[in-house]
Amino acid sequence: MEHIKKKIILLKQELSSCKDRALFDQTLEFHIGQLSHEIISDPSLAKQLDRNSKIFFLSNRLKDTLSRKALMDKYDPEERTKQIAEFIEQINGEALFYAKEIYLMLLTELGIPNDIEVPAVQDKKEKSAILKKISREKRELYRPDLILHLLIVCGMVLFIVWFHWMSL
């Protein structure tokens, strides 16, 4: 376990020194293969995970987690909230398949908060409430003022007066 942990720390350091996205992806792809092999051949981990889970975990989830981390830095807060909410929902569905300690260790090493421990964020209702709040704030910005409404009312009154004057 310690051996894998060190490898992940090294990978993290190497990824942080990458200057462009292409190099980042290339380094990640290379190390994922290497790490997959390390975990499969680790006898201490063999008891905790079956072979398929290990491969699935490393090739799929590590890549996804790191790319999500890249997304967190890239997008605006609203988009980021959506991305994180989707991510949490996704990992919640899959988390049961992984050994919990490895999963948590990986999240800690990558500096991502442990969202599994935050049930409120996982809740769909909570997510929709956040999105509703954002849309409400947006709508508040375009709220018409009193003068516009007074003009509308005056327009309607004038129309009624004109109408009755015409029908005399």
């Binding site: 409400r136 709508r139 508040e140 709220r143 018409p144 003022d145 009193l146 516009l148 409404h149 009312v153 309607m156 009154v157 129309f159 009624i160 109408f163």
Partner: peptide
């Protein structure tokens, strides 16, 4: 409340409730 002016919602609801159907009826 998002359509109506802030602080005068109730007054404008009454005004619109009277005027809008009347104009549509005409």
């Amino acid at each position: 409340s998002f359509i109506l002016p802030k602080g005068h919602e109730k007054i404008f609801v009454v005004i619109y409730a009277l005027l809008v159907p009347y104009v549509l009826g005409l």
